[in-house]
Write a protein that binds this DNA or RNA. Sequence first.
DNA 1: TTGAAAGCGATACCAG
DNA 2: CTGGTATCGCTTTCAA
Lengths: 341, 341
Amino acid sequence: MPYVMVQIPKTPRSVPTSADVARLAGVSRATVSYVLNNTSAVRISEPTRRRVHEAARELGYVPHAAARSLRAGHSRMVLMPAPAFPVGPLYSRFIRELQSALGRLDYTVVQYGSVGLHGDEAARAWAELRPVAVLVPGSGLGPQGVTVLKRSGARVVVTVGPECVEGAHALQMDHSAVGFAAARHLYERGRRRIGVVVPAEDGLGAFSVPRLDGVRRALTGTDATVTELPLGYDEGAAARLAADWRARGLDAVFAYNDEYAMLLMSALQDVGVAVPEETAVVGADDLMLGRLLRPRLSTVHIELPSGRDLAELVDRAVRDPAAAPETRKVLGASVVHRDSS
Amino acid sequence: MPYVMVQIPKTPRSVPTSADVARLAGVSRATVSYVLNNTSAVRISEPTRRRVHEAARELGYVPHAAARSLRAGHSRMVLMPAPAFPVGPLYSRFIRELQSALGRLDYTVVQYGSVGLHGDEAARAWAELRPVAVLVPGSGLGPQGVTVLKRSGARVVVTVGPECVEGAHALQMDHSAVGFAAARHLYERGRRRIGVVVPAEDGLGAFSVPRLDGVRRALTGTDATVTELPLGYDEGAAARLAADWRARGLDAVFAYNDEYAMLLMSALQDVGVAVPEETAVVGADDLMLGRLLRPRLSTVHIELPSGRDLAELVDRAVRDPAAAPETRKVLGASVVHRDSS
DNA sequence: TTGAAAGCGATACCAG
DNA sequence: CTGGTATCGCTTTCAA
């Protein structure tokens, strides 16, 4: 008795494609596509749908995103470079919010690990993935980079950082506002010889330089002086800085952020410098831990844009790429006065 | 006089393809591919190479990754889900190291923002990108998920977390070792009624539960007791916990990590509980800031695997996917005894 | 040394 | 309702 041998691969050699599903279900590839995408333009009979779903499940079929977006000519991938610096709780929360908001709008958010890539080289690497939108925190993307991205199909480029770049939307987070607020606060409380901590760590320059500039801006035209204080994030460095503190004659310091502030404040106390009497200390970021030290740390509370807002901006821009790039200033900086200043 | 109109698009309507480059350079698409990929199998004349490069530059040509990997049948993308929890400095450094090490091995590392996706659903979403390797921190990936990923072409799946999953390599980071070390330390110092802080925050259960288990494991068969202490990360919650502290009669607490430890220690001091005399406090993660509080915070120093090691494991496994999945225990936990215990 | 053409996987049009 | 088939951009034989 003759019979037809139907191959049922027990251990599938290669990854199943829609053609395999079609074969197993006894239909054409087109039908598979219709069924799995719930295409409303065509009506497929219920038994067929069932067979297709069944076959897909059995084979463990997963559609091939590359093939799909190649065919479609576009994707819904939003790309951001993965941060190259130690991320704080603020930024990390911002990213999570953004991801979840974009996810709800049906975008796929991907952080691209571009270590060692710089400027336009990085932009090209991102462009290879043909993302529909690119969000770039920090500086480092020039107009060239924006052009590369747009030329390769990105409908939206948003910079999230200090600068505006031609052709890109900008969430302008002007960190100089942080330094500005801190300096104003210190000046108003009678301080005149003001130190500004500048972290020695790499990758923080994008934040520390503007913060320093903000301090300078706040104090130009006054009788106050500004002194840069390079500081590495370790106890030894802090102790060395504190050792000859009195020789510097500073009566206040804006310490870049709360962590550096705590480090320095602690070192100052160790050498007997009274905080705030002799030297006022102000941090930034309003970390929980700043409230626990004694004296409680004064700080600059930073208001980042909500991830939802950015997600909406992206979505709007994707739908209407012709619209003029928006530039929005989005960094609230307000001093939280506690006991260290 | 008839002439041929050569279109030089001033504002390119669509994104340039290798065909456009070929046209502009006056060669075939094949030649473009050879030149741009430096294919050594064929020798292309220098003038031609120059013309191709010129044309590519002029058009701002960027190859299409999807098309390429579709044709090639594989990619060098390493995918990891983006963390859904607030990342600390340890983890963030680990990721950066890993990215840069894999980058040097010519992989493209991508963090996939899978918020709201769970278990196998997430695995399917990842599989659509056809990554050559998937690194999954934390738990949440079942054997099903591993199967889906492998079936869709992933040559390597590595879990980085508490569990081993069938078919996947595992960097087993057994956080119970952290609790274990802390508990041993406290026991040896004569403490018997030991509290364990369990963060109320979402997403931390993957760490807090094993840490608690480790404490339990260290103390079974002894005369010590273990008390769970749920705690939200804010001053109010800490104050409430501290308020009726003496009623609990605990003489020690392992506070999940340094941040919760500092929060709680501060609250205890506020209500007059002497640390370490009345209650010893131990944190974990060995943050810089723990050394700044007084008393200086005892902590469990955690040794994460180096990103380079993991990168090498991935690379080795990609080259030889047939090899048996390795399971490596990689979490050093050692107590750093300071003044709070 | 270069060009023509097949084909990777999925989709959407047009016939049947 | 369902099945061929052209197509997306790129690589890679095979011929010329």
